[in-house]
Amino acid sequence: MEVRTIKVFTTVDNINLHTQVVDMSMTYGQQFGPTYLDGADVTKIKPHNSHEGKTFYVLPNDDTLRVEAFEYYHTTDPSFLGRYMSALNHTKKWKYPQVNGLTSIKWADNNCYLATALLTLQQIELKFNPPALQDAYYRARAGEAANFCALILAYCNKTVGELGDVRETMSYLFQHANLDSCKRVLNVVCKTCGQQQTTLKGVEAVMYMGTLSYEQFKKGVQIPCTCGKQATKYLVQQESPFVMMSAPPAQYELKHGTFTCASEYTGNYQCGHYKHITSKETLYCIDGALLTKSSEYKGPITDVFYKENSYTTTIK
């Protein structure tokens, strides 16, 4: 009895394709271990004539594949690729409408935090270190965002349907971005203890939790000093293409032309909904596939993004 075979390709990165001759009487799992086709788990399936010449994702289970996976995804987590594939199996079914010149995501599976993050990423200057993220990001900007969303979920250790947080998501993504040249110098002034300067680099240099107003941050924000008295913390120097200011959701007025974009969060910790506000020729609110415009805006804002380049204080 002759062994019926077909020729397929296996890959971990969709760049390096490895030619395989597979036995049609055995499952993919018996031949390769966990195997995925377009995100779908085909591990328990036997090869079919229609699979001839198709590319299958496999887990990096030998040295060659491990090197290829690390170079593309910059992670050695053995569960990463499987999590990416199972997320992709959902995100490829989502709709990605162009809204006001940006790629958004039609609401499904509690994905409003991903839509808000995706919209924000198209408006701030950011370059990702893992080629996987950078490639998928370019495709997302062009309207094909399924891979990018699935990668975000995998890097953030999230599953489809789980509630997510924009600030946490951005923080994970910033860790995989090139923020080497970003720098922030802060000064804390206390009447009792004097003053202390701190220099922050990388992710810490672009994120701040405690106030939404970048102007206020430049002037000074009140913080408790270690001595128990009130101290003032203010920005001395900022070198970065953008800054992200966050605070627990509270009524906040966004003035046209003073910011790049913002995240609105309605609801409580267990259950809520994100919308995205962007400042173009007027203010726009993007909620999944829905767009509304207004000249002014007041609502429960939790993150505001500002364009920056270089700032030095005039406070002496």
Rank of each mutant, 00 (worst) to 15 (best):
E2I: 09
E2T: 09
V3R: 12
V3G: 12
T5E: 15
I6G: 08
K7C: 11
T10H: 11
T10P: 11
T10G: 09
T11F: 06
L17W: 15
L17I: 14
H18L: 05
H18C: 09
T19H: 10
T19W: 09
Q20H: 14
D23Q: 10
D23Y: 14
M24T: 13
S25D: 15
S25C: 12
S25Y: 06
T27E: 14
Y28G: 07
Q30D: 12
Q31L: 12
Q31M: 12
P34W: 13
Y36C: 08
Y36H: 05
Y36T: 03
Y36N: 03
L37P: 03
L37W: 12
L37I: 11
D38E: 12
A40Q: 13
D41F: 05
D41S: 11
V42R: 04
V42C: 12
I45C: 10
K46V: 14
K46D: 13
P47A: 11
H48T: 14
H51T: 02
E52M: 10
E52K: 13
G53T: 09
G53I: 09
G53L: 11
F56P: 09
F56K: 04
Y57M: 13
Y57G: 06
Y57A: 09
V58C: 12
V58E: 02
V58M: 09
L59M: 13
L59S: 10
N61Q: 14
D62W: 04
D62V: 07
D63T: 08
T64C: 12
L65D: 04
L65V: 10
V67R: 14
E68N: 10
E68L: 08
E68M: 07
A69G: 08
F70G: 07
Y72I: 07
Y73W: 03
H74E: 08
T75H: 03
T75L: 00
T76K: 10
D77Y: 03
S79N: 14
F80A: 04
L81D: 04
G82H: 15
G82S: 14
Y84Q: 01
M85I: 09
S86K: 10
A87D: 09
N89C: 12
H90Q: 13
H90E: 11
H90V: 12
T91D: 02
T91W: 03
K92Q: 05
K93T: 10
K93F: 07
W94L: 00
K95G: 08
K95V: 14
Y96I: 03
Y96V: 07
Y96P: 09
P97W: 08
P97S: 09
Q98V: 14
G101V: 06
L102F: 05
L102C: 03
T103A: 08
S104H: 09
S104G: 13
I105Q: 06
K106W: 10
K106R: 15
W107I: 04
W107P: 03
A108R: 04
A108L: 01
D109V: 00
D109P: 01
N110D: 07
N111S: 01
N111W: 05
N111P: 02
Y113H: 09
Y113D: 07
L114K: 05
A115R: 01
A115I: 13
A115Y: 03
L118A: 06
T120E: 06
T120S: 12
L121D: 06
L121P: 07
Q122T: 05
I124A: 05
I124Y: 00
I124R: 04
E125H: 05
P130F: 01
P130I: 06
P130M: 03
P130W: 02
P131N: 00
A132V: 02
L133N: 01
D135S: 10
A136Y: 08
Y138N: 13
Y138D: 14
A140L: 12
R141C: 13
A142L: 12
A142F: 10
G143S: 03
E144S: 11
E144T: 04
E144F: 09
E144H: 09
A146L: 02
N147G: 10
N147K: 11
F148K: 02
F148G: 03
F148M: 12
C149T: 06
C149F: 03
L151S: 07
I152W: 01
L153Q: 04
A154M: 04
A154N: 05
Y155G: 01
Y155Q: 08
C156E: 01
N157R: 07
N157E: 08
V160P: 13
G164I: 04
R167D: 03
R167L: 04
E168I: 15
T169P: 04
M170G: 03
M170R: 00
Y172K: 14
Y172M: 12
Y172V: 11
F174S: 02
F174L: 09
F174T: 06
Q175E: 00
Q175G: 10
Q175A: 08
A177H: 00
L179F: 15
D180N: 15
K183L: 11
R184A: 11
R184V: 01
V185A: 01
V185M: 08
L186W: 05
N187I: 05
N187C: 14
N187H: 08
V188P: 01
V189P: 07
V189D: 14
C190Q: 09
C190M: 00
K191F: 12
T192W: 06
C193S: 04
G194W: 02
G194K: 06
G194S: 02
Q195I: 13
Q196R: 14
T198R: 11
T198E: 13
T198W: 11
L200D: 08
K201M: 10
K201I: 04
K201D: 01
K201H: 15
V203D: 11
A205E: 04
V206S: 01
M207Y: 09
M207A: 07
M207D: 05
Y208N: 04
M209H: 15
G210T: 00
G210F: 05
T211F: 08
L212P: 02
L212Q: 00
S213C: 07
S213G: 01
Y214C: 00
F217S: 04
F217A: 15
F217M: 07
K218H: 03
K218F: 02
G220K: 01
G220M: 01
G220R: 03
I223T: 10
I223R: 03
P224F: 09
T226F: 06
T226A: 14
C227T: 02
C227K: 03
C227N: 01
G228C: 03
G228T: 09
G228H: 00
K229V: 08
Q230V: 13
Q230N: 08
Q230C: 01
A231M: 02
T232Y: 09
T232C: 09
T232L: 11
K233I: 12
Y234I: 09
L235F: 01
L235Q: 01
L235W: 00
Q237K: 11
Q238C: 04
Q238W: 00
E239M: 08
E239G: 01
S240F: 02
S240L: 01
P241W: 02
V243R: 01
M244G: 01
M245T: 00
M245G: 01
S246Y: 00
A247F: 00
P248W: 15
P249H: 09
P249M: 08
A250N: 08
A250P: 01
A250Q: 15
Q251R: 05
Q251L: 09
Y252M: 10
Y252T: 07
Y252K: 03
Y252V: 06
E253I: 12
L254Y: 00
L254N: 04
L254H: 03
K255I: 13
G257F: 00
T258N: 03
T260G: 00
C261D: 02
C261W: 01
A262N: 08
S263D: 11
S263C: 09
E264D: 05
G267V: 15
N268P: 06
C271M: 15
G272S: 02
H273F: 06
Y274S: 07
H276D: 01
H276K: 00
I277A: 00
I277P: 05
K280S: 12
K280G: 14
L283I: 14
Y284I: 13
D287S: 02
D287K: 00
D287C: 01
G288K: 02
A289Q: 06
L290S: 15
L291N: 09
L291P: 04
S295W: 11
S295H: 11
S295T: 11
K298H: 11
G299I: 06
G299R: 08
G299T: 05
G299S: 01
P300C: 14
I301C: 07
I301T: 07
T302D: 10
T302V: 10
F305H: 02
K307S: 12
K307Y: 07
K307F: 05
K307P: 15
E308D: 03
N309H: 10
S310N: 15
Y311F: 14
T312M: 12
T313D: 07
T314L: 15
I315T: 15
K316Q: 15
